[in-house]
Amino acid sequence: MERYDRQVRFAGFGESGQEKLSNTAIMVMGAGALGTHAAELLTRMGAGKLIVIDMDIVELTNLHRQTLYTEEDVRLMKPKVEALKEKLQQINNDVEIKTLNTELNSQNIVGILQEHQPDIVIDAMDHFEIRFLVNEACHKLDIPWVYGAAVGSKGSVYAIDYEGPCLKCLMATMPATGESCEINGVLPPVTTQTAGLEVSEVIRFLSGEGFSRKLITVDTFGMNYKTMNINALKDDDCIVCGQHKYEHLEKETFRPVQSNCGRVFTLRFDDSIFNAEMNGEVIKENRFVKFINYDGYEMTLFNDGRMNVYGLDGMEEAEALYREITEGLPVNQHQ
């Protein structure tokens, strides 16, 4: 316990809280700003096991707010989960760290949760659509989870268990932290504070205090901090926690062309495209990813068939590019 002496000395946590933490498996969904900060805190505090999921590589624009990543990770185009695991193991090698370099969707999220059996889930995703899946999957499997979002200077946190209001119940009162980071930007302090609050909810839960039952919002530029008691917001007729219907899990969410934050679009092909011959110049590559210059477009091709294309002006242009690339591929090398 000497390593964790300062946190054990806190009466609300103590040796019992430390023992519980050291025997807990925590899944961190996302290895961006919220995920890296949360994973680092939990590693330093001595969590028993971390399962970190992300599908992206480290990019230069990540470094201002995503902790532990370096310019060398950018140069090597390392997958975020691999780069993060390397750094976390240097911090605390006693923590078991499992990484999944994959995309979460309606077809695999329940299976991933069932296979890895986390005791609690931390949301560190960057868009609301996936959080509806997390909400439904965790409710279906009775796994407590902590919602967190940050954009601009504003962050919000809400910890959800099987008994309290779920994310669907709260949607009418959720703060505007689902805005575009391209339009609103994001200040690094708000990601640090939001992730810290998410971990705080985890610590409360493991210490026997339970979740705070509060929707917490912060504005690091306006210097505001607010909490709202959410018990009264429980909707007995909620389609998720009231009726146990999981519409997002049951519908097909695959989209061959998807708009992301900024002027970035994801095009999805069969994974065989990674080794196929296609037009364009491969600038850099490793076994996970290729950086390609294609007819003036810069694109990142992942080994699972995802392709991020940068600087597109809209969906129409993205769909036209998708058709062009698809028509140039051998049969069965697109989704």
Rank of each mutant, 00 (worst) to 15 (best):
G30S: 04
T70L: 04
R255E: 15
V134S: 00
A149W: 01
C166Y: 03
E71K: 14
L104N: 01
E319P: 08
D56C: 05
C261D: 11
L206Y: 02
D237E: 13
E316W: 08
A31F: 05
E247N: 13
V257A: 04
Q107Y: 13
E72Q: 14
E285P: 06
L197P: 04
N135Q: 11
D237W: 04
Q333E: 10
T173W: 09
F13I: 00
E40I: 02
K49A: 00
M1S: 14
L133M: 06
R263K: 13
L167I: 08
G242Q: 06
N105K: 12
M29N: 07
L197V: 05
Y297S: 02
D73N: 15
T326K: 15
I239N: 06
P188A: 09
I292R: 03
F221Q: 10
P118D: 02
D270F: 08
K154W: 06
V95D: 01
M228Q: 15
K49D: 04
R287L: 10
L233T: 05
G222F: 03
C138T: 08
G280V: 06
Y297N: 15
A276M: 10
E96K: 12
D56G: 05
Q335Y: 12
V309A: 08
E324Q: 14
K226T: 11
K154T: 01
Y162C: 09
F10D: 00
V282L: 10
K49N: 02
D271V: 12
P189F: 00
H37A: 13
L170R: 07
E319T: 07
L170T: 07
F221A: 07
